[in-house]
Design a protein around this nucleic acid. Structure first.
Length: 384
RNA sequence: CGGGGCGUAGCGCAGUCCGGUUAGCGCGCAUGGUUUGGGACCAUGAGGUCCUCGGUUCGAAUCCGAGCGCCCCGACCA
């Protein structure tokens, strides 16, 4: 990508309403734009980060053997009447009546829909256990949206649901999910702790939440539950065991706030100058900075390195804007590119500077070796 | 949902208390020139339903009323 043509509107000033560091930096770095209270647009660079997080979540969920599906955001209220949660959810659930006067809702969560799916298709112990998940937009009409995308009314969530024949199976799957969650959060560059939690309106006997480190008081990025038979009993999701006896499915559910991870990653990876992305989720891993775009040699060298990085499959950005070097460095700090290749006066001597955003460590490298150097560095530091 | 605050150019703000030239400032934007290793400078310029509707007044960004939007504190919260 050429910065001069890329839509990433950086700014010296944060919007008036931004309070937390992640909110301020996401706005200033041109990652998000507020559309309405608690409703945000992910601008191109922000969306790249979101998709990078999504890919990590997907990779680790697939590793556990869970299968991805996609349920509707639009749901009939009838399923919620069955589970008994229609009234419980209150005004947080966005409801409306369709043209046939049926009460519909925008899903705040999907226990009802998944239980409906499973009861239709899973009737024998031979088909079990099964774990299904999706990555999807959830809707919750929060009384008070805040902290940018952290508490928003529309947000991206990964929700997984497991169905077992017995408690032991649930314990095993729960443990696998717990491990996968640790890999996901670590892989996204978060420092986190696991705490026993109140299960709230979701219900169940036991749950733990994953809380990311950071200043932001809404800390929770993941929550896993041993639900038991609460939904399978109210919604009549039964199976036959090996003796032919009808039993309720034993359920677990596992949620990750995918969009929240983005904010949490910033909370945990920034300094006074801006974001310092973990390599794994950075929108672009490398920024190539020609210090002066008027100089033919500098610009050409920068372009050559940029292209060489591209041909090695590395997502790179070329700051080809005709701006002062100082302004480019400030933007590079703000936007948090993990690796910078700075092409300046030493290009005439065949050297460029490679700087690592985290810790501001610099090395002079032969121009011809720059792309390989970056490649090796990223390979060695790909997970953080 | 209770309490408080705010709404003026794309963004951040001043002006409002105490009504009165052509509504300003910084950033950003456009044009030209000089610059280019830590948010450069000069010149010129464009850009405004002062949230909306109604009222008071010779006159309203400013006063009054209603509405809408947004934020903060609290309660709430996969």
């Amino acid at each position: 990508m050429r910065w001069s043509r890329y839509f990433m509107p950086t700014s010296k000033e944060a919007p008036r309403d931004a309070e937390t560091i992640s909110h301020k930096l996401m706005s200033r770095a041109g990652l998000i734009d507020k559309t309405s209270s608690g409703v945000y647009t992910y601008l191109p660079a922000g969306y790249r980060v979101l998709r990078n997080v999504e890919a990590i979540v997907r990779r680790e969920m697939d590793r556990t053997g869970a299968m991805e599906l996609l349920m509707p955001a639009l749901q009939p209220s009838s399923l919620w009447k069955e589970s008994g949660r229609l009234d419980k959810m209150g005004d947080e659930m966005i409801r409306f009546t369709d043209r046939h006067d049926r009460l519909m809702l925008f899903g705040p969560t999907h226990e009802e829909v998944i239980t409906d799916i499973v009861r239709k298709y899973f009737s024998s112990w031979k088909q079990l256990p099964v774990t299904l998940y999706q990555i999807q937009t959830k809707f919750r009409d929060e009384m008070r949206p805040r902290f940018g995308i952290v508490r928003s009314r529309e947000f991206l969530m990964k929700d997984a649901y497991s169905f077992e024949v017995d408690q032991q199976g649930l314990d095993e799957t729960y443990g696998k999910m717990r491990e996968a969650y640790c890999r996901i959060f670590t892989g996204c560059g978060l420092t986190f702790s696991i705490q026993q939690a109140d299960s709230g309106v979701i219900g169940g006997k036991f749950s733990e939440e994953f809380v990311a480190q950071g200043e932001c008081p809404e800390l929770e990025v993941g929550h896993i539950f041993k639900l038991g038979t609460q939904y399978s009993e109210s919604m009549k999701a039964f199976f036959r065991d090996s003796s032919g006896t009808e039993k309720p499915l034993i359920m677990g559910c596992y949620g990750i706030g995918v969009s929240r991870i983005v904010a949490a990653a910033i909370e945990g990876n920034h300094d006074q100058k801006g974001i310092s992305w973990p390599v794994s989720i950075a929108p672009f891993k490398v920024l190539v900075i020609p210090s002066n775009t008027e100089s033919g040699q500098i610009l050409e060298t920068a372009q050559a390195i940029y292209q060489s990085l591209g041909s090695r499959g590395i997502s790179a950005m070329l700051d080809d804007r005709n701006q002062s070097a100082g302004m480019k460095f400030a933007d590079a700090d703000l936007c948090g590119f993990p690796v910078w290749v700075i092409v300046g006066k030493k290009a005439a001597e065949g050297k460029v500077e490679i700087r690592i955003r985290k810790g501001s460590v610099s090395s002079d490298v032969e121009t011809g070796n720059a792309a390989r150097w970056v490649c090796d560095f990223l390979e060695a530091n790909g997970q953080s």
